[in-house]
């Protein structure tokens, strides 16, 4: 892949919620970047911090109880964390769009669809009302909504789930953002509709050159549309790389566990699935060492005591696991840099 322009860079992000029960360390030292026109997947189980990370980019988490404890989020070179509210509002929804998980609850039931799509232009003096409407209708057509004039005047309850999700995407896209963040956009939809929405996202990326951050727990969705993948667990990144590297040269036991624990179409009846035993760590008191150590079949003494180092296996492929250390026993996960498979 050619070196593309980095649109968004997240560096050593630490985000904590302070609650009566103690501090929840939701995001612990996460770094990744998003490039022009790519689809970046963030995958992990619920509670791994993937949604919080994404919401941090737009400062959508209420502060307090949330606090940024460190790190930088650079959007086109500017640090979002240092901006005041006014500056963030210029970016939020305009430069970076957000598609929420549940289209049934994230649309306003008392507003017409058209008005919700146009809402992002509210308070802007450089466009006229007619231009805004034209733009809204155009974007509705683009996301595959039929009969736009009629839909424009309808309320969300008059639309089906797939249609509502298209409206959500239209809202995110209407001001031609350079990045859209999709937080599990297809989880509540049926497979046939899910396939339609994913194809739509890819098509829009082609047409508009928008970068997409795709947050999901479904490895099938990742495989279908993502160029690069970040795997998160317990508030940390455990592995990142291109989609091919993650799927075919898996080098973290957690990623492997995710893949072997799902029933796939080519899994035979009677084959035993290998689940990841146990449950994710408690982020009130995250483990000192590797977050996955307690559930890992390959766990060594060092894993419980020290957080693993980052190992670069290729230009893109990074894994955070002690198994890559030269003193670790030889396992299937061991890769050396530059090794082609």
């Amino acid at each position: 892949m050619a070196e593309q322009e980095k649109i968004l860079e997240i560096k050593n992000l630490v985000f904590t919620f302070k609650t009566y029960g103690g501090e929840v360390k939701a995001v612990r030292d996460v770094s990744f970047d998003v490039r022009q026109g790519e689809v970046l997947g963030i995958v992990g189980e619920s509670g791994c911090g993937k949604s919080v990370t994404a919401q941090c980019i737009l400062r959508l988490n209420p502060e307090p109880p949330g606090f940024f404890e460190g790190g930088e989020i650079l959007y086109k070179g500017q640090d979002i964390l240092k901006m005041d509210n006014k500056a963030i509002r210029k970016i939020r929804g305009r430069e970076i769009g957000f598609v929420f998980q549940d289209p049934m609850t994230s649309l306003n039931p008392t507003m017409r669809v058209g008005a919700q799509i146009e809402e992002v232009f509210l308070g802007r003096t450089d466009v006229t009302k007619a231009e805004v409407k034209e733009r809204a209708l155009e974007i509705m057509k683009l996301v595959g909504i039929s009969d736009v004039e009629k839909r424009y005047k309808q309320y969300p309850h008059e639309l089906s789930g797939g249609m509502k999700q298209r409206v959500m995407i239209a809202i995110a896209l209407v001001s031609k953002p350079s990045v859209i963040i999709c937080d599990e956009p297809t989880t509540s939809l049926d497979v046939t509709i899910e396939a339609q929405i994913l194809e739509l996202l890819l098509e829009l990326r082609e047409k508009l050159g928008t970068s997409i951050i795709m947050i999901t727990h479904d490895l099938g969705v990742i495989a279908k549309i993502c160029d690069r993948v970040v795997v998160m667990y317990g508030g940390k990144i455990v592995e990142k790389g291109t989609a091919d590297e993650i799927y075919y040269e898996t080098s973290h036991p957690y990623t492997r566990g995710l893949m072997t624990s799902i029933a796939r179409l080519d899994t035979n009846r009677g084959d035993k699935l290998t689940p990841i035993e146990g449950t994710p760590p408690d982020l009130f008191s995250p483990p000192v060492g590797c977050p996955f150590a307690a559930r890992c079949d390959y766990c060594m003494d060092v894993c419980n005591q020290y957080p693993p180092e980052q190992y670069m296996l290729s230009d893109e492929h990074m894994t955070v696991c002690w198994l890559q250390h030269e003193m670790a026993p030889d396992t299937e996960f061991r890769r050396t840099k530059g090794e082609a498979k």
Binding site: S160, G161, G162, M163, D190, V191, T192, I193, E194, A195, Q196, L198, E199, D218, L219, G220, V221, I222, A223, K224, C226, A243, D244, Y247, M259, I262, R264, L265
Partner: peptide, 22 residues
């Protein structure tokens, strides 16, 4: 329409289009 957890196969596979919704 089932998303396959295998990028090469998923990107190569052709979906039989199904129009509209239930």
């Amino acid at each position: 329409s089932i998303p396959e957890a295998d990028p090469r196969r998923a990107k190569a596979s052709q979906r039989i289009p199904i129009k509209g919704e239930i």
